[in-house]
Design a protein around this nucleic acid. Structure first.
Lengths: 235, 235
DNA sequence: CCCTGTTATAGTCACAATGACTACAACATC
DNA sequence: GATGTTGTAGTCATTGTGACTATAACAGGG
């Protein structure tokens, strides 16, 4: 029989958005040791009177600088390797958040800087081809978070959380293209989205003209469906 | 900017097996307060030198009494409500484990008793129709754990972890029947399992005679596939 | 104001997988 | 060896997909 040794409990956030047609994640540059100067996922410690999800929502507001975060948040998994933080024993309850294009973030008090990074730039190559090495085990968290999002686009309507309402089907398709790395077939994509009850609900309005010209697409809003069955397949 | 208040970090386990054609879960009767006398999921605190998964494996050995646990273990999610343990702040990293029929468990030092419960008896009805109320938030953990297993049978080959090798297809089908509550169609089930490369590998042996008589089924072993695509559908 | 490039929408067709079956084979026991 | 039980094999209509082609709507340049 053993005692219960003290741990610090933190939340880390993989906040995703679509920027310029690519999946982007929010990173902060650490001001303090350890890993001062390195880039890391935003996060912080859980306060005594809140649970992990509340802490994640709080950090989300603090780090993105928006009052009411307009997107989706869910728990990813917990990382608890004994040596993951050199200072002390910290377990981190990682979360995934995603939202339509957010404003350029402001650096918080504990961060020297904060900005969006294209995820592929961070995770490409053997360890850090184009982007910086991430602090702690955040590279692994980011890998897991991206895989969660990729998988969930297949069998849920989560993609609609990446676009602001109202949105067009081509916009929604670009979300899939950004997250999966390759766009789903145009016709089949429409057939699937429109054929799934409650995926999107039509408005009889048309979108604005895009800079590239072309026919203006119809606008839609999110439906109340959450699951796609059978799933959409990537590849 | 805040300090990092101390937490205790625990693991809780939902250990599933198939007994008499029904999905069963291992519960322990608590000896100590809080919830002394109540039934709870087995679990314990994470030690300073181990991560949550190692702690879960250790508890699995201790609570089931088997040297080398023969099944599958994975993290479920983390439960962190501030008031989930009346003594102090405890966050629990819940895990799901499953294995072929295990021996009747022995009560550990901190448990007055330990036994298998039929999951449907525990979760049926408004709150506790047939089984006991569970300690802490373990009812919720159990609900989430069962749903995880149900879902994973659809798109992974996890079901094979519920049967001892070698096994017959009817045995494997009974796993699906127990977990989903209704058996998949006989012919279609065989077609799917045998048609998925690496789900099972045949041995040219036949199974023993069952008490009910009938033709003896062919024996199989687990293949190296882990994913089923497209998934098997329940209902 | 018409031509041209671009983008959205609609529809086609072969093929894969499923759901719901029926027919047949092998075994145990009476 | 008759009988009930269980496992194995195959059929067939229906659904959904992947890979296309054709047409409609719009912007901007000449």
């Amino acid at each position: 029989m053993s005692e219960h040794p003290p741990f610090a409990v933190a939340v880390d956030l993989a906040v995703f958005t679509i920027r310029d047609g690519a999946l982007a994640v929010l990173l902060v540059e650490r001001r303090e040791e350890p890993f001062a100067g390195s880039w890391a996922l935003p996060g912080g410690f859980v306060e005594p009177d809140e649970d992990a999800e509340q802490a994640a929502w709080r950090e989300l507001r603090e780090e993105t600088g928006v009052e009411r975060f307009p997107g989706h948040l869910e728990q990813l998994r917990t990382y608890s390797a004994p040596d993951r933080d050199p200072r002390m024993r910290v377990v981190s309850v990682a979360h995934v958040a995603l939202a339509p294009d957010l404003p350029e973030p402001r650096a918080g008090t504990d961060a020297a800087d904060a900005r969006w990074w294209v995820v592929d730039d961070l995770l490409e190559g053997p360890d850090d081809a184009d982007g910086p090495a991430l602090a702690f085990d955040h590279r692994q968290i980011l890998v897991d978070a991206r895989e969660r999002v990729r998988a969930k686009l297949e069998y849920t309507t989560l993609a609609t959380e990446f676009v602001a309402e109202p949105f067009t089907l081509p916009e929604l398709r670009r979300v899939y293209a950004a997250v999966w790395g390759t766009p789903p077939d145009l016709g089949n994509f429409r057939r699937k989205v429109l054929g799934t009850d409650g995926f999107v609900v039509p408005t009889d309005t048309r979108g604005h003209a895009t800079e590239a010209g072309g026919r203006r697409a119809l606008l839609y809003r999110r439906g109340d469906a959450t699951l796609i069955s059978p799933p959409m397949t990537r590849g």
